[in-house]
Simulated scan of single mutants.
Amino acid sequence: MVTIEVAPGVRLESLTTGSGTPVTVFAHGLAGGIADTRPLGGAVAGSRVFFQFRGHGASTAPAGAWTYQDLADDLRGVADATGATRAVGVSLGAGALCRLLAAEPTRFDRIVLFLPAVLDEPRPAAARTRLGGLLRAIASADRDAVAAEVATEVPAELRGTSAARAFITLRTTALLGSGLGASLAGLPDQTAVDSAEPLKAVTAEALVIGCRGDTLHPAETAERVADLLPRATLHVYDEPHPLWRHRHDLRERISTFLNS
């Protein structure tokens, strides 16, 4: 692990695997981290740069709520420091990647947007309710309540497995630690970009991956992102939780696209 300083007081934990070019940077989802994105990049050629956004893991930043612009700055800083020409964004990371591309549409050659949650319109009411429930649980510091919210990220039939229990424990700890709850305060009402129009100028080849039946990651958001990006391919899984139910296919789909 190494630390990359992307701005005064903002030091992000990172890990590089593989070697040579191309260099691909991986941006994780809410309360996730390097351990969550590494499975997606295991078969990707070249150097793979995994990092943790501010407030996650050992990454540090000034106190206060952050915005998608802050996250885009994190992603840009890591990409610039490592010479990344490709990027993968997962959920929150996909929003940060969209924010960066709206400002710098030629920044990357290839991009993957996995489970984009929000673009330029407010989240649907159901998604805001889900996020609000999570934030209230975090604010209460009730570990059981937070764990119950996190458990919804795992298919019901898998929640009793050792892998699921470990995931729920780690994610719950992350949400209750490092003051992350305060940083998330404004998240339900935020959009990733102010306007989606600049995405029409993005030059990168793109793979957009969504799924149906996921309250926090509506398939309609993935479809709209793919429609806006001029060189996008869209794949939508017919059921939620693709990282749990379709991990092999997902990993192969991402690596085939990035390695071609």
Results as ranks from 00 to 15, higher is better:
Met1Tyr: 06
Val2Ile: 10
Ile4Cys: 07
Glu5Ser: 14
Pro8His: 07
Pro8Val: 05
Pro8Arg: 08
Val10Gly: 07
Ser14Ala: 15
Leu15Trp: 12
Thr16Gln: 12
Thr17Gln: 08
Thr17Ile: 05
Thr21Val: 01
Thr21Asp: 10
Val23Asp: 06
Val25His: 04
His28Gly: 05
Ala35Trp: 11
Thr37Lys: 00
Pro39Ala: 02
Gly41Leu: 08
Gly41Asn: 04
Gly42Lys: 08
Val44Tyr: 00
Val44Asn: 00
Ala45Leu: 06
Ser47Val: 04
Ser47Pro: 03
Ser47Met: 08
Ser47Gln: 09
Val49Phe: 05
Phe50Gln: 00
Phe50Cys: 02
Gln52Leu: 06
Arg54Trp: 02
His56Met: 05
His56Val: 02
Gly57Lys: 03
Ala58Arg: 15
Ser59Ile: 05
Thr60Met: 01
Ala63Phe: 01
Gly64Leu: 07
Trp66Lys: 00
Trp66Thr: 11
Asp70Met: 03
Asp70Asn: 14
Ala72Tyr: 01
Asp74Cys: 01
Arg76Thr: 01
Asp80Ser: 11
Asp80Asn: 03
Ala81Leu: 06
Thr82Arg: 14
Ala84Met: 09
Ala87Arg: 06
Gly89Pro: 02
Val90Ala: 04
Leu92Ile: 04
Ala96Trp: 09
Leu97Lys: 06
Leu97Phe: 07
Cys98Ala: 14
Leu100Gln: 11
Glu104Arg: 10
Glu104Gln: 09
Pro105His: 02
Arg110Val: 03
Arg110Pro: 03
Val112Arg: 07
Leu115Ser: 14
Val118Asn: 12
Leu119Lys: 11
Asp120Val: 11
Arg123Tyr: 11
Ala125Gly: 12
Ala127Asp: 15
Thr129Asn: 13
Arg130Trp: 15
Arg130Glu: 15
Gly132Ile: 13
Leu134Tyr: 13
Ser140Gly: 11
Ala141Pro: 00
Ala145Ile: 09
Ala147Gln: 10
Ala148Tyr: 06
Glu149Met: 14
Ala151Thr: 14
Thr152Tyr: 07
Val154Trp: 10
Val154Tyr: 09
Ala164Glu: 10
Ile168Leu: 13
Thr169Pro: 00
Arg171Leu: 11
Ala174Ser: 15
Ala174Arg: 13
Leu175Ser: 08
Leu176Lys: 08
Leu176Val: 13
Ser178Pro: 01
Ala185Ile: 13
Ala185Ser: 14
Leu187Phe: 15
Val193Cys: 06
Val193Asn: 05
Asp194Arg: 13
Ser195Gln: 10
Ser195Trp: 05
Pro198Phe: 04
Lys200Tyr: 00
Val202Phe: 11
Leu207Val: 07
Gly210Met: 12
Gly210Ala: 11
Gly213Met: 13
His217Pro: 01
Pro218Val: 12
Glu220Lys: 14
Thr221Lys: 10
Arg224Glu: 14
Arg224Ser: 12
Val225Arg: 04
Ala226Tyr: 08
Asp227Ala: 15
Pro230Met: 02
Leu234Thr: 08
His235Phe: 14
Val236Arg: 11
Asp238Cys: 08
His241Pro: 07
Pro242Asp: 08
Leu243Lys: 10
Trp244Ser: 05
Trp244Phe: 07
His246Gln: 13
His246Ile: 01
His248Met: 00
Asp249Val: 07
Asp249Phe: 03
Asp249Ser: 10
Leu250Phe: 02
Arg253Met: 03
Ser255Arg: 05
Ser255Met: 02
Phe257Ser: 06
Leu258Pro: 04
Ser260Ile: 00
